[in-house]
């Protein structure tokens, strides 16, 4: 967590290996799933085509990718069927697509950059319940946030605000 511009997204991109840090290393145990803050989808593709695209990268066949995508979407109260291109999805629904893509194939480590933007209240609450379920299943989840009301329900908080860089267990 931290204030705007303090480097939360940069930190996550370093964890994902997309940016180099000044020093240090990141050790990942298992497969990575990454949900960027924005720009992670193709405007003219359907949600199910996004599932097929990500699934192929993870070595899943198309039918399984779509099934997993639909299941993930259903947990966020979203039905991706219907042939709506990503550009026509609302901001919140597009973010659900973004999140489902990141979790497709059950990666061991999830890096989520403010993944709940645009979610309604119910979906937001459900999202955190999913985070806790994923954690209980043995996955590591890093969530970038600037919202303070969930901090008592995570295992570790890293505050990147200048002058307060410390980890709180």
């Amino acid at each position: 967590m931290g204030a705007n511009g303090c480097g939360k997204s940069t930190f996550l991109r370093i964890c994902a290996g997309l940016l180099s840090p000044d020093s240090g290393e990141v050790v990942v145990d298992g497969e990575l799933g990454f949900c960027p803050q924005d720009g992670g989808t193709y405007d003219f593709l359907l949600p199910e085509e996004h599932f097929a695209l990500v699934g192929a990268g993870r070595g899943l066949d198309r039918a399984r990718s779509r099934r997993l995508g639909r299941t993930g979407a259903a947990t966020l109260h979203w039905d991706p069927a219907g042939g709506v291109q990503a550009r026509h999805l609302s901001g919140g629904t597009r973010q659900k697509l973004n999140l489902v893509m990141a979790t497709l194939g059950d990666p061991d480590v999830l890096l989520l950059d403010e993944p709940y933007q645009g979610f309604d209240r119910g979906t937001y609450v459900d999202f955190w319940q999913h985070v806790w379920r994923w954690r209980d299943e043995g996955r590591a989840i890093v969530v970038v946030t600037h919202l303070l009301n969930q901090l008592d329900q995570v295992d570790q908080v890293l505050d990147l605000t200048p002058g307060t860089r410390e980890a709180v267990a």
């Binding site: 960027p36 720009g39 990141a102 194939g105």
Partner: peptide, 15 residues
């Protein structure tokens, strides 16, 4: 251009 912002996540997805 349209792929530039999607490719990093696809790279992490196994591509």
């Amino acid at each position: 251009g349209t792929s530039r912002h999607v490719e990093p996540r696809l790279r992490l997805s196994g591509y």
